[in-house]
Simulated scan of single mutants.
Amino acid sequence: MSTADAVAARLRAAGSVFAEDEAALLLAEASSPEALEDLVRRRVGGEPLETILGWAEFCGLRVRTAPRVFVPRRRTELLARRAAALLPAGGVAVDLCCGTGAVAMVIAALASPGVLHAADLDPAAVACARRNLEPLGGVVTEGDLFDALPEDLRGRIDVLAVNAPYVPTDAIATMPPEARDHEARMALDGGTDGLDLHRRIAAAAPEWLAPGGAVLIETGRTQAGWTAVLLSSAGLEVEVDSDDEVDGTVAIGRRSA
């Protein structure tokens, strides 16, 4: 049995659905047999592959990751693509609850932001996002939602992209171990119904948006209607967009021009 087959067999036995693909990535990353054994041991132990590799693929980009920092999911590609599409050339874009800063990276790659800002409450996420975004001219700050943003952005944001935690507290125990055991709880827990942060964001977003600006919030399929109601109650024009291919759902609220 080849080394690749042996690694794939160990990963498959540990529950990996894409064992051969993961084995190839780990083999490419390892600098020695000892290093490979360490990587495989960590993956068999449930650590996210992206954290082990130190990067995640997202919308065709390689995003740096870090231990305990929320790993960008494929479903969030819908949020990133829609945000980039809505940003006017030279506009102001903000990635709130940014994690690694993956959404802001896509906005930088697909649009032409004049100002690119990202923020998160988790210091580890802020440090990771800075590594990803500062080379692109982005600014990353630490704080609780809008408290993290510079005051001069109030009323100027053209696109506010948000992937705030929206998993109901009681549902965290049912998540895969690689998420619930290896990512910060603050990056997952959305409160009793998963909408605690959506309520706060919807209530405050209008005063931060520029005329005609939009806030985009990733949400769950079963929660999308409620997220939309929150945005509508804040006086925004609302639509909900879903993409079955990536299993993503985004509620979008627009301020009148």
Score class of each variant (00 low, 15 high):
Val94Phe: 01
Pro113Leu: 12
Ala93Leu: 08
Leu53Val: 14
Ala66Met: 14
Glu47Asp: 08
Glu57Asp: 15
Cys128Thr: 01
Thr100Leu: 06
Glu50Trp: 04
Ala56Tyr: 15
Leu39Arg: 03
Asn132Thr: 14
Arg75Asn: 12
Trp55Met: 02
Pro33Cys: 12
Val103Ser: 07
Glu57Trp: 12
Asp95Glu: 15
Arg43Val: 13
Leu79His: 07
Ala93Tyr: 06
Asp38Cys: 11
Val69Lys: 05
Pro67Arg: 12
Arg75His: 14
Arg62Trp: 11
Arg131Gly: 15
Glu37Ile: 09
Ile52Arg: 00
Cys98Asn: 03
Ala108Asp: 05
Ala124Asp: 14
Gly45Arg: 13
Asn132Ala: 11
Pro67Met: 01
Ala104Leu: 00
Gly101Phe: 00
Val103Trp: 01
Leu121Gln: 08
Ala66Gln: 09
Cys98Val: 02
Leu36Tyr: 06
Ala30Ser: 13
Asp120Val: 04
Ser31Thr: 13
Ser112Trp: 08
Met105Leu: 14
Glu37Gln: 04
Cys98Gly: 09
Ala35Asp: 12
Val69Gly: 00
Arg130Trp: 14
Pro48Cys: 10
Ser31Arg: 07
Gly91Gln: 06
Ala84Gln: 11
Pro123His: 14
Ala109His: 14
Ala125Ser: 13
Ser112Val: 12
Val44Phe: 06
Phe58Trp: 06
Asp95Tyr: 00
Gly101Met: 00
Val115Glu: 10
Met105Gly: 03
Ala104Gln: 02
Glu77Tyr: 09
Ser32His: 11
Ala118Val: 04
